[in-house]
Structure formats: C-alpha cells, structure tokens
Simulated assay, not measured.
Amino acid sequence: MFTFKICEEIELKILELQDAEKLFTLINNNHDYLSKWLPWVNESTKVEVTQEFIQFELSRFAKNNGFSSGIIFNNELVGCIGVHDINWRNRKTSIGYWLGEKYQGSGVMTRACKGLLRYLIQDLGINRVEIRACSENYKSRAIPERLGFIHEGTIRQAEWIDGRFYDHVVYGILAEDIGV
C-alpha cells in the first residue's frame, strides 16, 4: 500500500484494515485530548467503528478522491493526516490532521503537513490547498501559519462541539505561493 517518506523519522502510510486496532487504541488513549476539537472521537467507541472509517477511506483512495494516512514516527503510529475530497476540475483540496498528545511539540505534524503539501502540489498538480481549524485551537492553527498559508477568513459558528459552536479559521496556499 502507499507510503510516503517525509524524512528519516516520519512516513505517511495509507491506513489499511490491519491498522484498525492500533488506530483505535491511539484514539482511545487520547480520547480526552482529541475530543476537545474533534467531535467524531466520541463516536469512536469500538474497533469496528475504526474499521468502517478505514474502509471508507480506502474506497475514497481507490476512487482517486482523497485518502487518510497514518503518521508513522520512529516506526510508531502517532496520528493521522488526510486529504479530503479532491476537486480535480479546479485542482484544489483540503487537509486535516490530528496527533496523539505526547507527540505534540516535536515538529512531527509540521513536517508531515509540509511533506504532504509538497506531494499534493508537485506530484498531483493540485493548485490550492486549504486547512481549517477551530479558532481557539491554537496548536492546530500554528501548522498552516508556520508553513506560509494565508489566513483567508473566518467562518462563524462552523462546528458544534461539546455543547457550543466554534468558529473555523480558513487558511489557503497556492502552488505559486511556494514557487511551484
């Protein structure tokens, strides 16, 4: 299955059904941390839900319409990064990501996003990549800011999490912004 080496320590690997148990355990072990910003975490109550997610993502990958990959750091699954639906006509997509709490602050996600961005623009010919993050999720917002994405606006009350609405900050980058 598809793997993409980012650097000596990090690679991205398309999730397969055999990864379901590890992925479920990672999500479960980080439930409180992840559920603050990712409402789907509360629905991930058993490994079968994780298997269904992986099967959906494999189907999307087979249709050439995006994918989810595990972030492998020093041979350990530490999080996920995904390419949402790809609009091939307009050559644009968006990415989303999450990382287990103990791996925060180590530069893993910044390097994973940078590598994936390079792949999307240089190898797939994508022109525009977008990242959205809850306005109060400063760690998630730091990634596109660090990578030179442009803050394009805020979508008010875009997501309902734990009994309240949160705004989404929208970041975008174009191939020309990074010299491609």
Results as ranks from 00 to 15, higher is better:
28 N>R: 07
35 S>Y: 02
46 K>E: 11
39 P>N: 07
37 W>Q: 01
44 S>D: 14
36 K>Q: 10
47 V>F: 01
46 K>Q: 12
25 T>R: 11
56 F>E: 11
44 S>M: 15
53 F>I: 09
45 T>P: 07
26 L>P: 02
48 E>N: 13
28 N>F: 12
45 T>L: 09
55 Q>D: 06
48 E>S: 13
33 Y>I: 06
39 P>R: 04
41 V>Y: 02
46 K>M: 07
46 K>Y: 10
37 W>S: 02
41 V>N: 00
51 Q>Y: 10
46 K>D: 11
28 N>A: 08
31 H>C: 11
52 E>M: 14
43 E>V: 08
37 W>K: 06
32 D>E: 15
39 P>L: 05
37 W>I: 12
45 T>F: 05
53 F>E: 09
27 I>L: 01
52 E>R: 15
48 E>M: 08
54 I>C: 09
36 K>I: 15
51 Q>R: 15
49 V>P: 12
53 F>H: 00
51 Q>I: 04
27 I>M: 00
37 W>R: 05
35 S>L: 08
45 T>E: 10
47 V>Y: 02
30 N>E: 06
36 K>Y: 03
35 S>M: 05
56 F>P: 08
55 Q>R: 14
48 E>A: 11
43 E>L: 06
29 N>S: 10
32 D>Y: 09
38 L>G: 02
42 N>T: 12
50 T>Y: 04
31 H>T: 14
26 L>I: 06
26 L>S: 02
37 W>G: 07
28 N>V: 07
42 N>S: 13
41 V>K: 03
34 L>A: 01
56 F>I: 08
56 F>V: 08
35 S>V: 12
51 Q>F: 09
38 L>E: 00
35 S>Q: 12
26 L>F: 00
31 H>I: 13
44 S>I: 14
39 P>I: 06
53 F>K: 04
35 S>A: 10
30 N>P: 00
53 F>T: 05
25 T>D: 15
39 P>T: 10
46 K>R: 11
40 W>H: 07
32 D>G: 04
40 W>E: 05
36 K>C: 02
49 V>R: 15
27 I>F: 02
33 Y>P: 03
29 N>G: 14
39 P>Q: 04
25 T>A: 14
45 T>R: 14
43 E>N: 12
50 T>M: 08
